[in-house]
Design a protein around this nucleic acid. Structure first.
Lengths: 190, 190
DNA sequence: CAGGCCATGTAACTGGTTACATGATTAG
DNA sequence: CTAATCATGTAACCAGTTACATGGCCTG
């Protein structure tokens, strides 16, 4: 149930509406957790009903009104409790790896394009993360001595960067392997 | 719905019972997908009802009878269709990263033990993967020229190894960061 | 005789995805 | 006029987790 906790962390960093949270989940929080707006609204409603969040209706001009959520005492307590409770190290879940193994029962060469597409997507994510890192942490615009919250955000982002780099390198390995299997094909003209 | 496809791949590699599949999901397939026996039995029943799998009751001596599943024509067709259809590159979901960012609102030092525990778990997984690699692919017992299926299994395993190594390095980075934040603590005796 | 492995399942619940639904404002 | 952005939600479905349930065989 980490979505609740991710929301608590995000709202502690900065109160905001469901819509704003959904956008954050596409950016910074999305480095390590994703959620759709539908899911977010549902969970926000439940958390407010449970007394973990406070809502404030904010009128805006030129835009729809919004509900600004912030963390209530019990919410903060729930987060603290979770932080002190050990969690299971999680395992990978990678559809593409299923496909790669499945290629043995199909044409391996047919997978090249798909793998290249994924490589491209990870490359774009990496560029996006690096831009964010320069903007918020290492660039000339960034605050010189980072506060603890920023240091922690930075180390999480470094994890995202390391993940994308590793994945790109692995997909190159996969492409090499697929080419090797397709190149010297066992045909009659071998 | 990649569990169905993972099951199809595994049964194409080798027919087997639900119990055997559950064990494979703890080993080789578990490099990139996990599933509990409950889930597997449920999905197997559905796939058989849909005509994607065949069952054969196998009597055994000294053990309970088992149902051996194998892939039927429509199952193979369903796999082929999925293999040719693009899928979305997936994003990370990492609870521990939520905790790390949450530590800004708690005591960062209190997280050290938890991170060390995770580091340890990933270290063990890495050792397990490396042992499997030596046994099946690179060691003296391994078949000299690997067939395409084995090449593909190997490249997926290399992905798991790269992931574990990357994660361990990142967790070291996280530990450094936590120590830096806790070390020069902003107390009255600073 | 206790514990672990082999083997199969049901039931209830929780979390996540997809599809549907509405409606105002602003920029091109 | 059209598309994008802001803003909030409901409903149905699918996937995954947790708890419960059974029972024989083998090893120590």
């Amino acid at each position: 149930m980490a979505l609740e906790h991710a929301i608590l962390v995000s709202l502690l960093e900065q109160p905001g509406s469901g819509y704003e949270l959904a956008r954050r989940f596409e950016r910074s929080i999305g480095y390590f957790w994703t959620a759709s707006h539908q899911q977010i609204y549902r969970v926000l409603a439940r958390m407010e009903a449970d007394g973990r969040l406070l809502v404030r209706e904010v009128e805006q001009q030129g835009r729809p009104d919004k509900k600004e959520y912030s963390v209530a005492g019990p919410g903060r307590a729930a987060l603290a409790e979770w932080l002190h409770k050990p969690i299971e190290p999680e395992s990978l879940r990678h559809d593409l790896a299923v496909k790669i193994r499945g290629a043995a029962f199909d044409d391996p060469a047919a997978l090249v394009r798909e793998v290249e597409r994924h490589r491209q997507a990870h490359h774009e994510r990496l560029a996006h993360y690096l831009a964010g890192e320069a903007r918020d942490f290492t660039g000339p615009e960034a605050p010189a001595p980072l506060d603890p919250g920023q240091e922690l955000q930075h180390v999480v982002l470094r994890g995202g960067i390391a993940y994308e780099r590793m994945t790109i390198a692995w997909l190159d390995d996969v492409l090499d392997t697929l080419h090797r299997l397709a190149g010297p094909r066992p045909g009659p003209a071998a």
